[in-house]
């Protein structure tokens, strides 16, 4: 330690003209370091990344011979389950990851530390978006591969993939900004997953993920219609279910326009609330 003077390279006179590192390069570095941390947290990997894949494997195997049917139209269980669990996965990798990560990073002082460095705010949030995109992309690819290969879910046509793409992108964006907004709700980092997980779980049960949506009580359908998960699941059903299955929807159609409108409304609401409530420091820190 006493050799510090010789070991630390001595500073050259203060140069104010040195170029600051470009924001985009820092965003990529942030995404990398966020992913590294995410995949080193075992519970995050199990309950956010692997959860939809595990659920898909369990439910599709247990109910292998069952169909979801109202007596007129019948859809194989795995085919009906895939859209709901895809939508769930998107919500977990965007909303739940953001809400918990930011609450923990705020509580441990990680956000405060970053705020004291020349890291641009834009690079920080682009890094978060990068983390969400990689997680979502890999998770969705694994889910689809599992469904197509192991459970014989039919592969959609080109028009189906187009719907899939915009529901995926809009759903991920909405989940991400709502996660930023919701991250201010948990009082501490330790309580974050206890506060966020029940919200996500209840939404899964009332939005037609574990039970067929048409089989739920109508008041439950009404409540679910206020939140994005139901609409993401319905949008995904329009992609993976035969067109005749729209008779199973309460409206008797896929309502893609409404899906876009509701997700868009949550996206804007999340942006407004998130940008106004985001804090780099804990609430009790002045």
């Amino acid at each position: 330690m006493s050799t510090v003077t010789s070991a630390v390279p001595s500073p050259v006179p203060a140069p104010h003209h040195d170029r600051l590192p470009p924001t985009l390069r820092l965003a990529v570095a942030r995404a990398g370091i966020e992913l590294k941390q995410f995949f080193r947290e075992r519970d995050a990997v199990v309950f956010i990344f692997a959860y939809p894949i595990i659920m898909m494997a369990i439910f599709a195997t247990v109910f292998d011979t069952e169909v979801q049917s109202d007596g007129t139209v019948a859809v194989p269980f795995a085919q009906y389950f895939l859209p709901g669990i895809l939508a769930t996965g998107i919500m977990l990798t965007s909303f739940q990851t953001m809400a918990i990560d930011l609450a923990v990073q705020r509580d441990t002082g990680a956000l405060k530390r970053l705020r004291g460095t020349p890291l641009p705010v834009t690079a920080f949030f682009l890094g978060k978006v990068g983390q969400v995109l990689v997680n979502t992309g890999v998770q969705v690819a694994l889910l689809l591969a599992l469904a197509f290969i192991a459970y014989d879910v039919p592969v959609p046509d080109a028009a189906g993939w187009l719907t899939f793409a915009w529901v995926l992108v809009l759903g991920t964006a909405t989940g991400t900004v709502c996660g930023v907004a919701f991250s201010s709700v948990p009082r501490t980092g330790r309580s974050a997953s206890a506060v966020v997980t029940p919200v996500v779980l209840v939404l899964q049960f009332i939005s037609g993920v574990f039970f067929a949506f048409f089989a739920l009580p109508s008041w439950m359908q009404t409540v679910a219609s206020l939140f994005p998960l139901k609409w993401m699941a319905q949008g995904m059903r329009s992609v993976f279910l035969p067109d005749a299955a729209k008779a199973l929807e309460p409206a008797g159609s896929w309502e893609l326009g409404t899906t876009a409108a509701i997700l868009g409304a949550w996206l804007i609401a999340g942006l407004l609330v998130g940008t106004r409530t985001f804090r780099w420091r804990r609430r009790d820190d002045g």
């Binding site: 080193r40 990073q105 530390r113």
Partner: peptide, 18 residues
């Protein structure tokens, strides 16, 4: 300006997994 100052906060327990 932030690139010209250094900050060591009172307590820190963040970035534990790196």
């Amino acid at each position: 300006w932030r690139s010209r100052i250094g900050i060591v906060l009172q307590s820190a327990d963040d970035q534990a997994e790196l």
